[in-house]
Amino acid sequence: MSILPWDLTVIPQRFFQFADAALYTLQITFFGILLGLIIGLVAALGRLSKRQWINSLSRAYIFLIRGTPLLVQLFIIYYGLTSIVTIDPIPSAIIALGIHNGAYIAEIFRGSIQSIDYGQMEAARSLGMTQGKAMQRIVLPQAFKRAVPPLGNQLIIALKDSSLASTIAVPELMLKGRQMGSSSFMYMEMFLIVGIWYLIMTSLLSFVMHRIEQRLKVSDHD
């Protein structure tokens, strides 16, 4: 019938059978990024700290995590730690995504904090603010705003990286694609469905991040 060796009509037919899996993908990405934001902020402030040991600790964390693959980190948490503690697949995936993205987010935050004119800190201090208060009230709000575009980028990377969780049996999109493929032998069709789901989610994320950027621009208008 068809000139193609694949039956593309199954794509719309099977498409929504992947919804549950997509929800898992979103879930581990969301919580992973949330954890990553917290770790990233702490590590960024650590990198800017004058206290040598805090600075070295943050530097070591970023060095180790950025220098090794997410898959290795994921396996260390899920398989490697079993002799001490057993962590379920989903929490393992969230922790791995959090720690991994935390290192990149730390560098994003550090860059955006350093890009804020030092005069802002001086003005805050001249009012009698403590260093911490000045950071919290004056520097960080401006730095966060500048961090939004690169954070959006990181969020999209994290969403796609979450597919690695399929290797530890998290029932997310990628695993679903493999299972559906092997049971029907329609690998092409099933992975096309998986790809479309990722594309929809990354597009939505880009859109949302773009809207946030626009909203934050209020104080910039001349």
């Binding site: 004119d117 005069g119 003005a123 001249s126 910039d220």
Partner: peptide, 14 residues
Amino acid sequence: LGMVFQHFNLFPHM
């Protein structure tokens, strides 16, 4: 000690 700077250093987000 009130300080006024050459480049104002107003807080742009407020």
